[in-house]
Amino acid sequence: MKIAVLIKQVPGSESPLPLNSTQTWVDEPQVTYTMNPPDNYALEEALLIKENVGDGEVVAVSLGPERVKKVIREGLAKGADRGIYLEENSQIETDPLSIARSFASVLQDENFDLILTGLQSDDAGMGQTGVLIGELLGLSTATLAVQTNIQDEQIRVKRELESGWFQWVKLPLPASISIQSGLNTPRYPSLKGIMGAKKKEIRVIPASEHQTAEKTQTIKKVFVPQTTKKTEVIEGNADTAAARILEILKSDVKVL
């Protein structure tokens, strides 16, 4: 079982997010980065599938500026066998179609049985790379997987639907599956894993070798959402807050 896991590096949930001077993205130097949390689940699922099947290879793949090698290394430390790094010079690349083309051009020669992605990234949140790659490479696809079972040349995936509904889908391999968060418990890298990671291969694909497509969409501007709602802010100690809440319940909203 040969599995590619696409891992993205994104601003951490507690990172400050000041805008850059052109207001086209956040100010990179002030941001602390982490592995995109849904991708961490995808990685764990890949490692579990490999362990259950009993043999195979897990390859951690990432695209971005130099710093994203860190998440590949993290993947290797957790047990991925090797890495592929697609060099990208701009700090943030937001066109899913051209990103997917880049990935597809690199992944197609490797003949993966399975491509796993997190359901979406915590930065641009486009949520489509895995499915796009699947279509570009002619693979079957499924999203929001909360459980996976490999059964000879097929994968059975439990998909999460809305409002508490689920559905099983059976796909022929090769397939590209996007993984919903929370379906497993991602492992910590062991010390041996961390020390061993640097001995594992990371293949570097220069930008010129994978970027061919024109950009079809770009972020022109980012801004802090303006609230249109009139909000009453209640501050002060617990007693005053409780008193005001009681008044709201009684007089404003009238639910008492």
């Binding site: 066109d95 899913p96 179609l97 997917a100 359901l119 949140g125 486009m126 949520g127 489509q128 499915v131 796009l132 699947g134 279509e135 570009l136 696809t141 499924a142 999203t143 929001l144 998909r159 999460e160 639907l161 809305e162 079809t216 969409q217």
Partner: peptide, 23 residues
């Protein structure tokens, strides 16, 4: 922007080479 849209619409985007701006 439902779960179902997220499941198939990217495939339409790739098939037709039309950008998909979600959410």
């Amino acid at each position: 922007h439902t779960y179902q849209t997220r499941d198939y619409m990217p495939r339409v985007s790739a098939k037709c080479d039309i950008p998909f701006i979600p959410d």
